[in-house]
């Protein structure tokens, strides 16, 4: 799908509004990380991923694994806008009987390739998919989005070294490095040192980008095409990006806005859309 940078930026803002709307309606969910991941998710769903919304199980589709599963509102927003889900489902996030569970559920939700939520595990699943597809002769690619707090999990690194061992160039890992985790700044909870250096030393082709600069996201997706090893993209982002009072604030990791906060946030996100 060819789209201009500015169209993709608009999509990212649309995703942010949709995700925040869902979290507000549910009065539960994780706005901070949903907002920080929005630009990467927009680039993937509105340009990069080969998908067929009318055929969610299309075997030749690119796979997307949201390993930081708690920010699924941003993925659900993309699935809504791409037509995997019907518009009336927007209000069902975290509701009893809903297809939109609190964390992604591959058995319930069209467009979800694997169930995630317990941190670290999605990265292994994505590597397994990439290995299975590659060895079965497929050219399908597997994109994975993990969090920086999530990189505390040793399993992330077990998975990455496996991807490198098997030279899975069809595995592209984005880390949404927004600098905050549940209990506070990553630097305080478990200092990450340089994530990029870690991925490089593991043997990944590694990029560091501004995760809100659409041009940089697109450039890195293009550059990843000719890699012969796994690709890691450390995307520096702002938690709560686009809503002034949510930016850089630990409080908004897993708190839903009240009515006043929601109205204010939506106004800011509308304004941001026409920047």
């Amino acid at each position: 799908m060819e789209r201009t940078v500015s169209e993709l930026q608009q999509k990212a803002m649309e995703l942010r509004r949709c995700a925040l709307w869902m979290i507000y309606a549910a009065q539960s969910g994780h706005p901070g990380g949903s907002l920080s991941a929005a630009d990467i998710v927009a680039a993937l769903y509105f340009r990069e991923l080969r998908l067929r919304p009318e055929e969610p199980q299309w075997p030749e589709r690119d796979r997307f694994v949201l390993s930081k599963g708690h920010v699924c509102p941003i993925q659900y927003a993309a699935l809504l806008l791409r037509g995997f889900l019907s518009p009336e489902e927007k209000g069902t996030l975290r509701k009893k009987g809903s297809r939109l569970q609190g964390h992604p559920d591959m058995k319930r939700t069209p467009g979800i390739d694997i169930s995630t939520g317990s941190l670290g595990q999605g990265v292994s699943c994505a590597v397994g998919m990439a290995l299975g597809l590659r060895r079965q002769g497929s050219r399908v690619r597997v994109f994975c989005l993990a969090g920086d707090g999530e990189c505390n999990e040793g399993q992330v690194w077990e998975a990455v070294e496996t991807a490198v061992k098997y030279r899975l160039s069809n595995f592209i890992l984005f880390v949404d490095q927004n600098g905050l985790q549940n209990d506070g700044p990553c630097e305080e909870i478990m200092p990450p040192q340089s994530l990029a250096e870690k991925f490089r030393s593991f043997g990944c082709r590694t990029y560091e980008i501004d995760g809100h600069a659409m041009e940089e996201i697109l450039a890195v997706l293009d550059a990843a095409q000719d890699s012969d090893v796994p690709v890691a993209v450390v995307a520096h982002t702002v938690k709560g990006k686009g809503v002034s009072f949510m930016e850089h604030a630990v409080k908004w990791h897993g708190t839903a806005p009240n009515e006043e906060e929601f109205r204010l946030a939506m106004t800011e996100l509308e304004r941001g859309a026409v920047r």
Partner: peptide, 17 residues
């Protein structure tokens, strides 16, 4: 790396293995 093995196996199963 047992934890990774289980997750990787889930990924393999998700693509038909």
């Amino acid at each position: 790396a047992e934890q990774n093995a289980a997750g990787l196996a889930a990924g393999l199963a998700a693509v038909g293995i």
